[in-house]
């Protein structure tokens, strides 16, 4: 066979193209996480250093794993529960919002789901008869799930027993009031 093409000396243009392709390839490799920054979830017992690592990672290419990082931070915080943890998470979420990792609404939802007494599930722009009552069971189920998250955030991470009890009570009161209110709404129809 005749390998004429290979035996022919490469032109300057071809050489240039090869170099360009090689450079592009290298830059692509650089974008991938290195061994030390491979979106590995933070470990160890110290929440502050874990938050630092999470910020470093999430500022880079690991932002697609935001939820995993957040939950890992919750796990770490469980190991050292104290009231100050609430502020650490608030600061982290505000930072996430400022970095564009979360919208303001997402940041609020994250924070309030875990660290506030009020239930994110109880949102809506329309009156209770028309918006809440038709989905009462679903809303109450969602609130029950949210109470589990509040148990983690308020009780297990922030050591706020009274806050958790109040949230628990709020759920019970909501259940009672909704039962009566929705029954009253239905009677009009």
């Amino acid at each position: 066979m005749n390998y004429k093409i290979c035996s022919r000396p490469l032109s300057t243009l071809t050489k240039g193209l090869i170099v360009l392709v090689a450079l592009l390839g290298l830059s692509a490799c650089k974008a991938l996480p290195t061994q030390s920054q491979a979106c590995t979830l933070p470990g160890g017992p110290d929440l502050t250093s874990a938050v630092g690592q999470a910020k470093d990672d999430l500022s880079g290419v690991c932002s697609y794993r935001y939820d995993d990082y957040f939950h890992q931070l919750l796990e770490i915080a469980k190991g050292d529960p104290k009231p100050e943890n609430r502020r650490v998470f608030s600061d982290f979420l505000v930072w996430s919002q400022q970095q564009g990792l979360l919208s303001k609404r997402q940041a609020q939802d994250y924070y309030n789901r875990y660290f506030n007494l009020k239930f994110v599930a109880m949102q809506g722009d329309y009156n209770n008869c028309s918006s809440l009552c038709p989905n009462k069971k679903q809303v109450l189920r969602t609130m029950e799930q949210e109470l589990v998250d509040k148990e983690l955030g308020l009780l297990q991470i922030s050591r706020d027993r009274t806050g958790y009890q109040r949230a628990d009570r709020l759920l019970q009161e909501t259940e009672l009031v909704l039962e009566a209110t929705c029954s009253a709404c239905e009677s009009e129809q």
Binding site: K118, G124, L170, T181, S183
Partner: peptide, 24 residues
Amino acid sequence: SLQKRLRRELGQKMTPWDLQETLL
């Protein structure tokens, strides 16, 4: 009477968030 009041005050005048804040 209570039915009418509950429907108006809690059912029609309030959003879910209002209700939650009232309870809290």
